[in-house]
Write a protein that binds this DNA or RNA. Sequence first.
DNA 1: AGAATAGTGTCTTTTAGACACTATAGT
DNA 2: ACTATAGTGTCTAAAAGACACTATTCT
Lengths: 309, 309
Amino acid sequence: MAAMKNEPSQSDIFAYEHPFVTTDVVALSVGAGQQDNYRKLPEKHLEVLLVQRDAEPFAGQWALPGGFIHPGQTAREAALSKLQEKTGVPEVYLEQLFTFTEPDRDPRGWVVSSAHLALIEKGSVVQNEGSQRSCWFAAELGLVHESTDHYPEGRVEHKVYELRLSLQEQGEKDQGQPGETSDAALPGQAVITARVEHVITTTRTLRADEFAILDDGGLAFDHAKQIVYAILRLRNKIEYTDLALNLMPELFTLTDLQKVYEVILGRELLKAGFRRTVKDLVVETDEQTSSAGHRPSKLYRRNWNISLS
Amino acid sequence: MAAMKNEPSQSDIFAYEHPFVTTDVVALSVGAGQQDNYRKLPEKHLEVLLVQRDAEPFAGQWALPGGFIHPGQTAREAALSKLQEKTGVPEVYLEQLFTFTEPDRDPRGWVVSSAHLALIEKGSVVQNEGSQRSCWFAAELGLVHESTDHYPEGRVEHKVYELRLSLQEQGEKDQGQPGETSDAALPGQAVITARVEHVITTTRTLRADEFAILDDGGLAFDHAKQIVYAILRLRNKIEYTDLALNLMPELFTLTDLQKVYEVILGRELLKAGFRRTVKDLVVETDEQTSSAGHRPSKLYRRNWNISLS
DNA sequence: AGAATAGTGTCTTTTAGACACTATAGT
DNA sequence: ACTATAGTGTCTAAAAGACACTATTCT
């Protein structure tokens, strides 16, 4: 992906000028933090997979995994293979998110990108041996500003989201010396703060949505926008689908599942009600957790014998 | 949009080979049929806008409006301008539907298409003066086959949809001689029957959707798939959004609105319940219908002072 | 008068929200 | 014994489904 011819004479035989097409993958998962009390359950957080670019443009900056679509491939196939290359996961949930076509979204020229949303169970990740560094960043999305302007013909709402990404140490499982110099010698930023604006225009006849990057926080391309878009989509779909189960391991407790919902929705849920609403999505097993410092809990698995929609 | 270079040596410097990108618009509206009894309300039906291609490939066949994206445009802008060219409507609801990237979807070569869904109020259409013939086709989507195969690792569901498109006479408003030779001298098929299969694969770990054309019924490219996709999306979103209001004129009766919901969902709704659920989406006006052969009904307009989502 | 639609009232059922209570390993 | 989580019961409020009833205009 080196040089590219740049901007030929506009509005000329334009039928023959055509964009490059890439795919980007917003891979989300839910990770667990430190367990600070021997019997307290660890906090969970949403995570997104980023790779550090080694080529221009944006060399050294963090970006979503992705790349050019090869001839003979579909966008989905390209996204899937990029993702497998970075994570080693053979089977993931993957859906098309949105195709970003702003003409100036890539400094190299005209490049449209078909963005995908992937949901990955963190435990299934085999650490990659790819050429680029890839890391999971904890992601927090917060609404930091909201305003509405009223006009006689309609109104315009602005919502500003702040996306905070912070690098997770990889050595979660090997439990290394706690709080030590584990994050030394890491190039690139370890905390990224981006701001993305969601503009909703409502007139008497229609409603339109637009997203704009206010501050990319150092993320490459329009990836801040893509990540926000992905999280909002997940937040929305989790309410009426079983999407969240793609983030769970084979066996899980209902409390774990509830925490996944909570971390995605960004609010707490009531236990009794939650269990009522998910009861058809899961199947009880004979297994239990043990040695947890408190009452053991039943383990469930996904119920794949349901037909939604 | 004439000749295109064809298929260079695969898997060579592929970073430099890139697809053409087009946009297609599935423009849907709701039209009214004949009023066969002076006091009976006319039937409504879903309609889709098609244009007759005058160039190869698929010359003479019906296709969705669309075309290549020009440099400097977004896909949305391209879709919007194509649509305005065909309908003359200045403001329409338009959302990105899906980007179709199957490498063989265009016989000319590698062409990906960013499909859009537009919702148009039929009355706002100014008949076009474009070079191509464009017509509204009544659209009916029916599920004609459904089967499930069970495997130890999951299951595969097949749903076969039949899409029936039939050409509507343009002269609806000028009320011409009923049932006469009005549809003479029309080239191209007046009824198109296509079949599209929806394959849902569910395994223990994930669920994936695929669409395949079984019979394009004479529609160009993969447009049968795009239309089915669009109708299913509309059917789904109408349940939790106010999307249907984009299909209504400025003033409308609740019965009209209900018929629009019914025609999209393909089932009847109960009046009392329907009015309860839409009451926040609309605002009552002082106006009424008149000389209808029965009790006049109140006219409503869209309530754009609500925030969904 | 009678056809056809407009509009409302009110039951029942289902779903969602809230909260309080009991249960049980592990140190 | 105490802590922290596991799990259930039940009351209430809100939403959805079903159906019956009244209201009104035009031919």
